[in-house]
Design a binder for these strands. Structure first.
Lengths: 366, 366
DNA sequence: TTGAAAGCGATACCAC
DNA sequence: GTGGTATCGCTTTCAA
C-alpha cells in the first residue's frame, strides 16, 4: 500500500522539473524538451509505474472524463444490463469511464443519485431503465449533457433526447413472421400496460393485420402479466378444453418468460411446439430464449445497440461543450447522430427477429 | 447552467473569508465564528445552493469516499446483481459511493479496471463474480483495502478475504429437505465443474446421505450444464422409457433453469410435479423460481447478505486506515507493506431453503 | 530548453 | 474570532 508515484517523483528521478514531465508524458515534448531528457523522463515514469492522479486532473481540467449512469434497477434486476455494457464500451473507447448508481426503483433516490454524481463532476449523465417507460426526469440532470436510454421524458413538449427500441415495429414484425408461415389465427399475450411496451407491441400486431388486410380478433389479445405463471394461465385460457379448430395456431408473447409459461401449458395439454402451436417470445433473454426446449423464436431487444447509440450521442455533446465552463441553454437541438428514426429527439432502434425452433408452419387444415 | 457555486462565492456573499465558510459548514463553527456570521454564511450557502466539490475534497483529504467494485459480468449478466445491491446499500449508509466497472468476463481487463479505479483514488476495492469461482486476483488490488465477494483468491496460501455462500451446506440441506418428505431415490443434476459450486453442492448432497446412513447411487449424479436444455435432456435420461419403479422420485437441480428444463421434460412425459416427481431448484432466481408452474422449491443464494457482509468488512478496514497517506518508503518500496489487508479469511454465508410447490411427499409405494 | 509560479476548490493550521 | 496561507497533484503560461 505505498503511496503512488507523482509527477514530482518522476521529475526528481529524471533530474528535471515537473513541467517537463507533464509536457513529455502528454506528447507535447518534441520541440520543448531535449530528446535526452525525454528519454530519461519516460524511463523514470516506467520505473515508478507512474500514472497521473485522475482526481488532480479532474480538478485542474474541470472535466473528469466520467459519465454517470443512473439506473432504476438495471444492475440489480436480471434485465437489460446490456444497455450499460454497450454504453460502457463506447465510453471506454473514447477514454471515458462510467460510474453506475442504481436506485433500486426508489424514485426518491433519483434526485440524490444525480446530485452525488454531479458533485463528483461527471461530464455527462445517462438514465437507463429496465423496460421502456416514461421517466420523470430529475431536474438537476439538465446541468450537464444528458440522455435517456430505454425511457423517455414524460414532459410532453420535449425534454431530454432518448434512445428507445422500436416496439411497434417489433410487434408488427413478430406477427408478420408467423403470418409468413401461414398462420392466421394468432393470439397475443402481453403484460400489463404499466409499461408502454405492451400496448406498443400490440399496436404493431394490429398494424400487421391491417397491412395483411385481415381483421383483428380482439378476443385473441390478452393482457395477463409478465411472468411464467401468467403465460401458463393465459395459454390455458386459450387452449384448454377448446376444440382444435378453435385454437389459435400461433401465440405471440410479449416476453420470453411468458413464452416459457405457454410452452409449459402446451406440454401439459399434450400439444407439441411448434407442430400443434407456434410460440414466439420477445426480448431474446440471455440464456433463456436460446436454451429453451424448443429454442424460442423471439424478437431481440437491441439493448447493446441502444446503449451504444445513447453513449455515442451523449459523448458528441459532451465533447462539444467548450471546456467544462458554462453551457446555458441546456442540451437541446443538436442534430442526433444520424441514425434511423430520429423524431423530436427520440431515436428508435429496431428490434431483431430471431427465428429458432418454436415457430413453424401452420398445421394442415388451418 | 451556471458554474456551480464554490466556497469562495459563499464567502463573498456572506462577507466573510473562505475559512469561516469551511468551519461553519463542517460544524466547527461554534467557538470559532461569530453567531451572526454563521447565520449569514448558512443563508448564503442555501441561496447559492452550495455543495462542496467532491473532487477538490478528495484531492485535499487523500480519500475519496468511493469504493470501486470490479465485476466479471454481474452488471451485464442477469445474475447476482443483488450482491452489488447489498454492498451498495451498506456503502451508502456509511456515506460512501460505489462505482462499478464490469469487465464482461475479459480477464485482460481486470488489471486495467483496477488501475483505473486506483487512479480515481478509490478508498477500497471489491471484486464480485457471477457464480462462485477462484479468482486470479489482480496484483494491484493489494494497494488498497480489498475484498472478494462470491469468489476466492486462487493463491492457496493466503490472499484477500472473501465472502462466499456455503454451497456444501446448501446442497446438504436441499437433499435433507426432500428426504424429510420421504424421498430416498434422489437424483442430482448439476452443471459442469468449471465453477466449484457444482462439486460443492454435490458434496453436500453426499453428506446428507452419509448423515442419513444411506449409500449414494452414483448413477443418480449427473453433470450436464447450467441451462434449460441441459435440464430437459438430463431429466429425459432419468425418466424417459424408465419403469416407474426405477425412476428417481426427486430431482435436485443445481440451479433454477435446470429445474425449468426438468419440469418441461416431466410434462412432456405426462408426469406431474410434484405428484409423480419432486423437483428442486437452486438460486431462487428473481421472477423465475417464484413464478414457475409449479412454483419452485429452491435453495436461495444469500446474494444480498453476501454483498452486505463483504462491504461491511471492507469499510471496517477502510475506516481503520490512518487518515491519508502513510509516508515512509517512497513509491516502489515494497517489502514492508504486507499488512492486514492480505489476511486469508473466508466468510461463509448460509443459503436459505425456500419451500414452494414443486416438492411434495414421495409417491405411495416408493 | 528549462524551471518557476499560478491556479483548480476545499481544509487546517497559525498567526493576528 | 478571524482571515491569510500552505497543501493535495497536475497543467499551463511566462520568464529566464
Amino acid at each position: 500500500m505505498n503511496r503512488k508515484a507523482t509527477a514530482l517523483d518522476v521529475a526528481k528521478l529524471a533530474g528535471v522539473s515537473r513541467s517537463a514531465v507533464s509536457l513529455v508524458l502528454n506528447g507535447r515534448g518534441d520541440g520543448n524538451v531535449a530528446l535526452e531528457s525525454q528519454q530519461r523522463i519516460r524511463e523514470a515514469a516506467a520505473a515508478l509505474n507512474y500514472s497521473p492522479n485522475k482526481i488532480a486532473l479532474s480538478l485542474r481540467n474541470q472535466r473528469s472524463r466520467v459519465i454517470g449512469i443512473v439506473s432504476d434497477q438495471v444492475v440489480t434486476s436480471p434485465f437489460d444490463g446490456n444497455i450499460i455494457a454497450g454504453a460502457d464500451a463506447v465510453a471506454r473507447s473514447h477514454g471515458f469511464v462510467t460510474v453506475v448508481m442504481d436506485t433500486e426503483l426508489d424514485e426518491s433516490r433519483d434526485e440524490s443519485a444525480v446530485e452525488t454524481l454531479l458533485d463528483r463532476q461527471v461530464d455527462g449523465l445517462m438514465y437507463v431503465t429496465v423496460g421502456l417507460r416514461p421517466l420523470h426526469v430529475p431536474p438537476n440532470m439538465a446541468r450537464v449533457p444528458s440522455i435517456l436510454a430505454n425511457c423517455f421524458d414524460d414532459r410532453p413538449e420535449a425534454g431530454l433526447p432518448a434512445v428507445i427500441p422500436d416496439e411497434v415495429r417489433g410487434g408488427r414484425e413478430a406477427a408478420e413472421h408467423v403470418m409468413s408461415l401461414g398462420h392466421r389465427d394468432i393470439a397475443f399475450l402481453a403484460g400489463d400496460s404499466l409499461t408502454p411496451a405492451a400496448p406498443r407491441r400490440i399496436d404493431g400486431y394490429r398494424d400487421a393485420f391491417k397491412v395483411a388486410g385481415m381483421p383483428v380478433n380482439e378476443d385473441r389479445v390478452i393482457q395477463v402479466g409478465w411472468d411464467i405463471d401468467a403465460g401458463f394461465h393465459g395459454a390455458m385460457k386459450l387452449l384448454d378444453g377448446v376444440e382444435p379448430s378453435d385454437r389459435p395456431t400461433a401465440i405471440l408473447c410479449a416476453n420470453d418468460r411468458l413464452a416459457i409459461g405457454v410452452v409449459l401449458a402446451c406440454y401439459r395439454l399434450g400439444l407439441n411446439v411448434p407442430e400443434d402451436v407456434s410460440v414466439m417470445g420477445y426480448d431474446d433473454e440471455f440464456r433463456v430464449a436460446k436454451t429453451m426446449v424448443p429454442a424460442l423464436s423471439t424478437m431481440a431487444l437491441p439493448l447493446r445497440e441502444m446503449g451504444e447509440a445513447a453513449m455515442t450521442a451523449l459523448l458528441t455533446e459532451v465533447e462539444a461543450v467548450p471546456n467544462g465552463k458554462d453551457d446555458d441553454g441546456g442540451p437541446g437541438a443538436s442534430a442526433g447522430a444520424g441514425t434511423e428514426h430520429t423524431t423530436s429527439s427520440q431515436t428508435m432502434v429496431p428490434c431483431r427477429l430471431v427465428v429458432r425452433d418454436s415457430t413453424g408452419p401452420v398445421p394442415a387444415g388451418r
